[in-house]
Design a protein around this nucleic acid. Structure first.
Lengths: 208, 208, 208, 208
DNA sequence: AATGAATGAGAATTCATTCAT
DNA sequence: AATGAATGAATTCTCATTCAT
């Protein structure tokens, strides 16, 4: 929640709380109806604020989503730092995937609106671009993990694999509502797909 | 271009041509700016038609997309029937994937707007639902191919695998613009992912 | 159905039939939804004609209503000439009212759309004006009957009484759908109102 | 001006004033051109407001008329309560009619647009229905007066007589623009019609 | 003549954003 | 700061009327 998308940095707790309320409301509504159908007055109403107050903090509608994305990025950074333990380097790939996928799926479950913005469905092109930044950051972090495990890996390839990995994760998130795939199956299959794809690429060979 | 989404069945050649023009224009614009930012007057202008002509045949904006989706579904059915040859059953999985993936990627390249609707990005929730129908149809066809190759395969599993397969294909389509992944790499990696995932599931074992 | 509202005088029976169909359709639809909600395409569809054919006979929407009104005026003139028998002059007022009111109410029942135009409800101001001409003609005929019965009656008063009479008749027509007033009661009360109002004014005194 | 037809209850004085302005403008324009030809932007312009302000308070065009009708109903209730004095019960019918008709005619004179909605001319079917509710309320009040004067009167009959009475009043209001009938004559004749009709029905017989 | 496609001005309504209180 | 009223460009859709076939 850096200040970049804010019109004014709040000085008091009251303002900070307002901003959080607004972002929460925005997340909810975007999750429900998509970005385009989300109106600023709807957000204000859900946040129990006047529309004027909303514009006291955010210069325009897009900035609200930017703010939301910043918050998600911060959350994902937290997630990453929690996951990133020294043993990661030597963990067998299946375990590594558990350590990465599980918290991500849990996070998605808990955050209304996250999926819409992260997966990018129902967002406008402008939002899509902002979303891409978030995705890229995560992809770079994935690549970092790969490289740390396999220092010999070409960085370009690392980024390529991680981008694909993330894209597949997003695809499965998008499948979350499908009647064909109960949630546990979804997670299992996702791990299977990734494991089989990545094992030859970034798996630790015995003896290494 | 079946009549279901049309307000009126065109009686004259002019009308049929107009409808095609309008769908073409709609596809282009949706591909450029997404569904929500697509305006009926934009479509009309791009189709070199008066806005009234558009509404002669389509009852509303959504119906245009429905019409577009119907056209894509028909195209995909054509694609399927071309791919579906008797030797499909005994083909090695890599060859099978070539036969399926390549024409699909080619089709996507040629159709402005197809990606937006097929992948579902930038579409509104209402469109997303209509898109789902198209996706499901393709998924069922994939499942049919799997089942023909492996009659012993549980139909539920067949549908599950095909749904996941399709979802991954869509994810890669969504990656098409990424600077990290040139198009040939994209296709290669897609086939790799699918091959490794599907080989243990629907690969033909030697001697079968 | 003088030619005044027609673009072209039909030369063949086919054209005459078309015109009748169109007027019938217009009457029906105006009766159902009112003048403003009546569209020319609705009329054409109901008349099983193409919209272009409709405009071959009528220069615009209003002309259709004009044509309809002309037809009604002719019908009402017929009605009048049937009612106008020599004995009218010496008939007791109650009988006279029966002779006038009953056929009028019957006519109204049989003609979808007549009420809307005659009573003037649901019509636009332009139509209202055209309607007024029809109403005035009927009022003048009523006045004529009054004057014939009572040659001493001031013509101004005769027109005044007949205008009021007609206005009351229209009011009761407008009440026709009311749940409080079954049709027979409606007719009875209408006659009561008119009888009590007119008896002192145009009743024939014994000995006259 | 009850809140029922409003989208939002105004919180500030400005809003309340705006609503009144809009209703005034709507009444004027409806009176001039009828409901269907009345345009929301015409109303806004006449009310010296932006079209958006109109929609801040009224969800759609029809609601404006509903609001207008509510205001008229309130005005008519006021009128009724002013007329309703204890001596009403014993007043001779001519005096009673004076007491009822005169203020009503005065009110009509002062309210542009009232006639269009009350008499129901130039209104669309939807509006006609809303108008009916207002009319029915007034009719029930008339019936109440009848019943109070003549407790023995069957309530069904009371309502019937009052409905007819009101319908006749409306007919005369509709005649108000007629060149044949100057206003004073109109009022006199209206009272004559009603007096002769009602005297036998609800007149107080001597000795009662 | 008949058909139905083409036209475009105009209507209702929304909504991001600004402004007054 | 907070509230909610004000604004108006933009959007979807209609429909009387004209035109091409």
């Amino acid at each position: 929640m850096s200040s970049s998308s804010l019109r004014r940095v709040p000085q008091q707790g009251r303002g900070t709380r307002r901003i959080a309320q607004i972002l929460d409301a925005a997340a909810e509504i975007i999750g429900e109806v998509g970005y385009d159908a989300t109106t600023t007055s709807l957000i204000a109403a859900r946040a129990h604020t006047a529309i004027g107050s909303l514009y006291q903090f955010f210069p325009n509608k897009e900035a609200i989503v930017q703010g939301l994305l910043e918050r998600y990025r911060a959350d994902l950074r937290d997630l990453h730092s929690k996951v990133l333990t020294p043993d990661l380097l030597t963990l067998p790939l299946p375990t590594l995937l558990d350590r990465i996928i599980d918290p991500l799926m849990d996070f998605e479950m808990g955050q209304r609106g996250f999926k819409a913005l992260f997966v990018g469905v129902h967002a406008s092109p402008e939002i899509a671009q902002a979303t891409r930044a978030m995705t890229d950051e995560v992809a770079r972090r994935f690549a970092g993990i790969f490289t740390e495990r396999l220092p010999a890996l070409d960085p370009t390839l690392a980024l390529r694999y991680s981008t694909i990995t993330l894209s597949i994760v997003k695809a499965f998130l998008g499948l979350a509502a499908s009647p064909v795939l109960p949630r546990e199956v979804l997670v299992t299959e996702l791990k299977t797909v990734l494991l089989r794809y990545l094992e030859p690429l970034v798996g630790l060979r015995a003896g290494e």
